[in-house]
C-alpha cells in the first residue's frame, strides 16, 4: 500500500467512459440526476407550503417542528427505511433527499416572504396590485435572496448526501468510495471526492449567478 500513489491518472483515463454502468461519466450523470431531482421537487412543494404557512400562521409551528425532526434523521436511516418500500431504485435515494431539501426550503420560503418590508407591500397595494399579482410581481421577487440562500444549502448538501446512497447500491459517485474501499485503492475515492466537491462548487456558483440576474436592483443600489 505504501508505494501506491494517491491518484493514478491512467486508471481515470481508462474508466472515464468505458461504456459500462460503472464508468465515471455514467456515475457522474447518475449523481447529478439524483442530487438535483430532490431539490427541484423540494422547491415545487416548498413554495406552496411556505405560502400556506405565511397565510395561516398556525400552520408554521407544526410544519417547522416536523421538518426539524426530519432533518435530524440520518440519511442512511431514511435510505434503509425506504429500501423496504421502493427497493433498489433511484427513488430510494431521491425521496428521502426530497424531505431533507424540504426541511431547508420551507423555512427559507417563509423567512423570505417575512423579509418583505411592510412599506413595500403597502406600496404595492396602493398601486393597485391584487393579492395574487402582488405575490408574483412584488413579494416573491423581493424574497428571492433568502429563498436562494436556502436553495444553495439544499443543493450543496443534496450533492454531498447522494454519495451515502452508495451503501444501499444507489449512490452515483459514492459508488467509487465503495469500490476504492473494497480494493484498497485510493484513486476512485479521490476522484469521487474531487468530482462531488467540484459539482457542488459549480452548482453553488450557478445559483449565485442566478441570484444576481434575478435581483438586478440589489446591484443598482450598491453602485448608486
Amino acid at each position: 500500500m505504501t508505494d501506491e500513489p494517491l491518484v493514478r491518472w491512467d486508471w481515470i483515463a481508462r474508466n472515464w467512459a468505458n461504456g459500462g454502468p460503472t464508468a465515471i461519466s455514467a456515475l457522474l450523470e447518475n449523481h447529478i440526476v439524483m442530487a438535483f431531482l430532490p431539490v427541484l421537487f423540494g422547491l415545487v412543494v416548498a413554495l406552496p407550503l411556505g405560502l400556506a404557512c405565511v397565510r395561516w400562521r398556525w400552520l408554521y409551528q407544526p410544519t417547522a417542528a416536523l421538518m426539524n425532526v426530519t432533518y435530524s434523521l440520518p440519511s442512511l436511516v431514511l435510505f434503509s427505511i425506504f429500501l423496504s418500500v421502493t427497493g433498489l431504485t433511484r427513488s430510494t435515494v431521491v425521496i428521502p433527499l426530497t424531505f431533507f431539501a424540504l426541511a431547508v426550503l420551507i423555512p427559507a420560503v417563509v423567512d423570505g416572504l417575512a423579509s418583505v418590508p411592510d412599506p413595500v407591500r403597502q406600496s404595492a397595494v396602493a398601486m393597485g396590485f391584487r393579492p395574487a399579482r402582488r405575490l408574483l410581481r412584488v413579494e416573491l421577487p423581493v424574497a428571492v435572496p433568502v429563498v436562494l440562500a436556502g436553495l444553495r444549502v439544499a443543493t450543496v448538501s443534496s450533492i454531498s448526501l447522494v454519495s451515502v446512497g452508495a451503501l444501499i447500491g444507489q449512490g452515483g459517485l459514492g459508488n467509487l468510495f465503495i469500490d476504492g474501499w473494497q480494493r484498497q485503492f485510493y484513486t476512485p475515492i479521490v476522484v469521487g471526492i474531487a468530482l462531488i466537491v467540484l459539482l457542488a462548487v459549480l452548482a453553488d456558483g450557478l445559483l449565485v449567478l442566478a441570484q444576481r440576474l434575478l435581483t438586478p436592483w440589489s446591484r443598482a443600489r450598491r453602485t448608486a
Partner: peptide, 17 residues
Amino acid sequence: NAARALPTLGLLVLVVL
C-alpha cells in the same frame, strides 16, 4: 461552505485507508 460539500463517506474511507 466548501466543507459542507465534502462527502463524509468518501473522506472516511480515504482517511481510514
